[in-house]
Design a protein around this nucleic acid. Structure first.
Length: 453
RNA sequence: GGCCGGGUGGCGGAAUGGCUACGCAGAGGACUGCAAAUCCUUGAAUACCGGUUCGAUUCCGGUCCCGGCCUCCA
């Protein structure tokens, strides 16, 4: 039984799909104008785990994660780079997909892009206009918030509060300060498409509503994203979808907490981000993933200097155990403790604790038959977390480090092995020291010498 | 100002009305030519003040501090 915290009810609820034979989930992906940072990676990893769990529970799961490639920030970035908009968005969507693969994230069923779905967007806006939920004003089409009495229910924000807190000047052509843009005009320098309202482009929010409708249908089970999307993005999506489709948009709204850096939210606009690209130069994707799992998804996760070394060390230890048991055949396992705690609102820290408990069992096991059983459990448990699926020796050798060529290292290790055979320990230590100075540490293990870092 | 989270060991981070998980780092020992790994042992925490209770870190009230949303953000 899967339990999830629903932002809408602010309670943990038992998950009941609309149609158990076909479960539908949509997660808001990135706006591609920049390299994604670890804050962007968090929902990707969290919903990847949820996807794995759902696939285990239900025969068919459709998971869509969009890419927003129409946005004014994109236009600004392209202008700044003197680069074409398509070039920029393609460059960064490719980078995003690469980063996702690197994090061990399973490919969603659909990765829709806004530019491929303009007709769906236009027809949804048209529908809203026909139903008097939207109005045309000053070349813009705006959603009329007053036409939707439940506006604010998702984010728990009341109209009065929004007005009181408004820090931005209200556009004079809006009927209500909370009305938001569905369609806006484009000048010749800006990407635009022909529409009943002239050449223009969609506002933020509407693309997700339109793509959900097109790829998943009017109503879906789970809608997810970062907490910063609750308002206005999801509130607005919810309003426009319900008004256009006359049916509920999503039954479960799931939002992850932020990655913070020195306790402050990491965000592109605060310019305190750590990109996956930069982090990937020093650390492997799996280590980044492990770090992102260390806190419960609804809590903030504070990133600091030791976050990555901590997570690398943990994974090294786990892979070492797998290397020790490399010849043990993993027996196929049934539902594990890790799955059981993940079912409880995706409690990844507890899942990791359970994983380590399995590891302890494996270390204590004497008989091969028992080891085989436990190794099967361990591999199944780590699959749901999306870790430990690589060849352990490959991991421990860490070939991505480039301080010495692999051949050089092999040669030095051979020389050292020879010296040790001849009991020339002075020479053996000298070689160890050389390797250490190049950041390479070695371990003599079961007659073999393996090296890392 | 309105709304909403949170303060747990050196660090990260769960859980719980009743001996405070787990990981990383640390200490001691076994093992090792030395290391590493492994095994054994081990030190270390619930912001503050009240209340309820046999018992609170957990529930209630207050104080202080930190963060988020209200504007683009995962």
């Amino acid at each position: 039984m899967l339990k999830l915290f629903n932002t809408f009810s602010k309670k943990i609820e038992t998950f009941k799909p609309i149609n158990p034979k076909n479960v539908k989930m949509y997660v808001c992906g990135p706006t591609v104008y920049n390299h994604p940072h670890i804050g962007n990676a968090r929902p990707a990893v969290i919903f990847d785990i949820l996807y794995r769990i759902l696939k285990e529970l239900y025969p068919n799961v459709i998971y869509a994660r969009n890419i927003t490639d129409v946005d004014d920030k994109i236009n600004d970035a392209a202008k700044k780079n003197r680069e074409s908009i398509t070039n920029l968005t393609q460059r960064y969507s490719t980078a995003y997909e690469e980063d996702m693969r690197n994090l061990g994230i399973m490919e969603p069923s659909f990765i829709p892009k806004v530019t491929d779905n303009i007709p769906s967007i236009i027809s949804m806006i048209k529908k809203l206009e026909d139903l008097n939920h939207a109005y045309f004003s000053n070349d813009h089409v705006l959603f009329n918030v007053e036409s939707f009495p439940h506006y604010g229910k998702l984010s728990k924000l009341r109209q009065e509060d929004l007005i009181a807190g408004a820090r931005i000047e209200v556009a004079p052509y809006k009927k209500n300060s909370s009305d938001f843009v569905l369609w806006k005009p484009s000048d010749n320098d800006t990407p635009g498409w022909d529409s009943p309202w002239g050449r223009g482009r969609p506002g933020w929010h509407i693309e997700c509503s339109a793509m959900i409708k097109k790829f998943l249908g009017d109503s879906i089970d789970i809608h997810g994203g970062g907490q910063d999307l609750i308002f206005p993005h999801h509130e607005n999506e919810n309003a426009q979808s319900i008004c256009a489709n006359k049916s509920i948009l999503a039954n479960y709204w799931i939002h992850n907490g932020f990655v913070t850096f020195n306790k402050k939210k990491m965000s592109k606009s605060l310019n305190n981000i750590i990109t996956l690209n930069d982090l990937g130069k020093k650390f492997r994707g799996e280590s980044i993933r492990f770090a992102l799992l260390s806190a419960h998804y609804r809590q903030p996760l504070d990133w600091n200097k030791s976050t990555m070394t901590n997570s690398e060390n943990s994974l090294n230890n786990l892979y070492t155990i797998l290397a020790d048991n490399i010849n043990i055949y993993p027996k196929v396992s049934e539902q594990t403790n890790v799955e059981r705690v993940l079912l409880n609102d995706l409690n990844t820290p507890e899942a990791i604790a359970n994983l380590f408990s399995t590891v302890k069992d494996l270390q204590k096991a004497k008989k091969n038959s028992l080891k085989s059983e436990i190794k099967g459990i361990l591999l199944r448990e780590s699959y749901f977390l999306g870790i430990l699926q690589k060849d352990p020796y490959q991991w421990l050798k860490n070939p991505e480090q480039k301080s010495l060529s692999e051949n050089d290292i092999k040669n030095l290790i051979e020389q050292r092995t020879l010296a040790r055979k001849n009991k020339n320990f002075k020479e053996a230590d000298r070689i160890r020291e050389i390797l250490l100075q190049h950041g390479i540490s070695i371990k003599d293990e079961k007659g073999d010498t393996i090296w890392s870092k």
